[in-house]
């Protein structure tokens, strides 16, 4: 069986600045992978490289069995993507239903209208994230956490094989973080490969199957319990980090979440 994601020796640069250097890892089966690293560590670039949105300097990338770049549109058609919420201008006049249906538009192919099936998928996705009562609401009227849930619903509405999320827990309260993680965990259980990028460690320690520590290159990749130790985290964040185990819970301190 081909791995869901196979990356070997990937390097990416923006003009004269190296963003990723010799990144290699393999996700053999659909699972929940958290990519953790400080700001500027290349997390977003890694997501973009998986979708063929940045040109690699070198290396091999295969996603869902398709080579990237080359067959990136096959990958994109099978992917639900959640960008950083800060990159979206929430004052643009769109309704919640418009946002969720956008994902379906991309899958339909150009010039083809939306069908009842598309509307049903969009409504179901909103229901999954607990936003079904907001169908006709303006997106700009929602709180940050609600907006984030709608963006996740848009990604779910395409019924993806792969979910890529860029900082979905950033700027949302603990209750919303719980909802988001529960939804993503459930998707992973159903066989969707989930790759979530974050610099916020604590909320995801219990939900991730695998964790990648990234700081331009892969510092560590493995099961959460193998990777999340003080030595590797300190190497990733370049500062002292404490990992405290309280029963089944693991708490990390010393990482500046807004660094």
């Amino acid at each position: 069986m081909r791995p869901v994601i196979y990356v070997e020796g990937l390097s990416v640069a923006y003009e004269d600045k190296l963003a990723l250097e010799e990144v290699s890892f393999e996700l053999r089966e659909p699972a929940f992978l958290s990519v953790i690293g400080p700001n500027g560590s290349g997390k977003t670039t890694l997501l973009k490289a998986l979708l063929g949105m940045v040109k690699p300097l070198s290396g091999t990338v295969e996603v869902l069995g398709y080579r990237v770049p080359g067959e990136e549109y096959e990958v994109r058609r099978r992917t639900g993507y959640v960008p950083q919420r800060e990159r979206i201008d929430p004052t643009k006049p769109v309704l919640v239903k418009d946002v969720v249906l956008m994902g379906r538009v991309a899958k339909r192919g150009w010039g083809r209208g939306l069908t009842r099936e598309d509307y049903e998928a969009a409504r179901k996705a909103l229901e999954v994230v607990g936003m079904e009562g907001f169908w006709d609401e303006p997106f700009s009227h929602l709180s940050g956490g609600q907006q984030q849930r709608v963006l996740i619903a848009r990604a779910l509405a395409v019924q993806p094989q792969l979910l890529l999320l860029d900082e979905p827990l950033s700027g949302v309260d603990a209750a919303t973080q719980d909802v988001i993680l529960k939804v993503l965990r459930e998707e992973a259980r159903k066989g969707v490969a989930v790759v979530m990028v974050t610099h916020d460690l604590n909320p995801l320690l219990e939900v991730s199957d695998y964790v990648m520590l990234l700081n331009k290159t892969v510092v560590a990749f493995g099961r959460a319990e193998e990777v999340l130790n003080e030595y590797l985290l300190a190497r990733t964040f370049m500062r002292r980090v404490s990992v405290v185990k309280a029963g089944e819970k693991v708490v990390v301190s010393g990482v500046d979440h807004h660094a």
């Binding site: 949105m53 994109r76 058609r77 992917t79 993507y81 990159r87 946002v99 538009v105 991309a106 899958k107």
Partner: peptide, 20 residues
Amino acid sequence: LFYKEFKFITFDPEAAEAMG
């Protein structure tokens, strides 16, 4: 013909590209 695509690109060009 491309109204829905224009709407997506206008609202969130990054995700529009990422999703095909």
